[in-house]
Nucleic acid binder design. Structure first.
Lengths: 219, 219
DNA sequence: GTCTATAGGAGGATAGAC
DNA sequence: GTCTATCCTCCTATAGAC
């Protein structure tokens, strides 16, 4: 009889590893440490994973997969306007970095270089998916006149900034994350938060009006 | 008789360590590796540094000190306008990250957490100096109307982005670095590079006119 | 599946010769 | 100052019992 915390051993190892590696770094976290954290011994880890590097790859793969899923879901729920979608993606990104996935994501960022080259080759295509998501959104913002600068350069401003928020901000609740997301979106467009909000309101009105007129056309 | 490459042993160790640690990471770089890179043995390192951690601290301290010096010098040479000074600082930062100091700076960013806590306490005040430099400049940009967003948030956008340029750009020569600096400055203000350049020209004209009229007043 | 025991190697640090 | 030799610890990974 399985309950929600009756996770598979594999998942338990990934969880414990992500926490410890995020805290102390990959090279300073021994297999013994990780196994002990879930009341097992190192031999058991080598039954479930061929090597320690394989465990690291599994941790990072979880960060890439689950993170991407959260982002796409956030976009699915978002309004249709480019500003609203942008804010939704930035909010989701901050949620990934500061929420339940924070440890796996931290490991992804900090220990990527420690992965064997073959593992990086396997994971990179998945990691690139997210870049495309963001690029499309920034391009839409440029088309709508919100971004005047080169969208690719804006991405290079925005992405490291989002990932580094953990270095200077502690955001335990959803509200504080939403506030920071607004601040960062506003700064990306070089606007105040108030201006961003009023632009969002305008965008929503326009897109709803367009939606209604589209409906009436099909009547 | 000393020549330019007759560096002190200490400096040689710092140089070799920064290169190897930047490449492989602190924990994967052994004292034996570092000593061997300058044709010495590990025992010699422990004569010049009490521990391996002390060597790491020396590497990072060099990054902080020399980096800050380069930045302040760049500001000293810059024109007086806030835009020009901003571009000068960003250019200098990119120079630090991609130039001769790239290895020590890389180690600073990537291995900061590996420093013993006491070492971080010693170095942090020096590292904060630079943040103040940038904050003052962003505040001036806001006063001149070039930044509408919150300056602190803009710093949180800009700083990680500058440090991460090494992850996606290779900039061997000064020209390519200047171009990237312009792109990033423009994106920070959400303007095209062309707009930034014309704003810079205007600023220079105005400040020179002010300078001349100031002179004539004192005549 | 999980444990114990251990092989086999590498790393930081020290002692003492030169 | 630098080297050699070595101590001691810790790590990944494996073998085999249960």
């Amino acid at each position: 009889m399985r309950t929600t915390n009756d996770k598979s051993r594999i998942a338990e190892f990934i969880d414990a590893a992500s926490r410890l590696i995020a805290e102390k770094g990959y090279d300073r976290t021994s297999v013994r440490d990780i196994a002990q954290a879930i009341n097992l011994t190192s031999g058991t880890m080598f039954y479930h994973f061929k090597t320690k590097d394989d465990l690291l790859e599994a941790v990072i793969k979880k960060g890439v997969d689950d993170g991407f899923q959260l982002m796409t879901e956030a976009l699915r729920r978002a309004e249709s306007g480019s500003l609203a979608r942008f804010l939704a993606l930035v909010t989701a990104h901050i949620g990934v970095v500061h929420g339940d996935l924070r440890h796996v994501h931290h490991v992804w960022l900090r220990e990527w270089d420690r992965l064997p080259k073959e593992a990086r080759v396997r994971l990179r295509p998945l990691a690139e998916q997210y870049r495309e998501l963001l690029d499309n959104l920034l391009f839409a913002l440029a088309q709508d006149g919100h971004i005047k600068a080169d969208p690719a350069t804006v991405r290079h401003l925005l992405l490291p900034a989002l990932n580094w928020t953990t270095a200077w901000a502690t955001l335990p609740d959803q509200h504080s994350r939403t506030l920071l997301a607004e601040q960062i979106c506003a700064a990306t467009l070089n606007q105040t938060v108030d201006t961003l909000r009023s632009l969002l309101r305008k965008e929503t009105e326009v897109s709803r009006a367009a939606f209604l007129s589209g409906n009436s056309l099909t009547d």
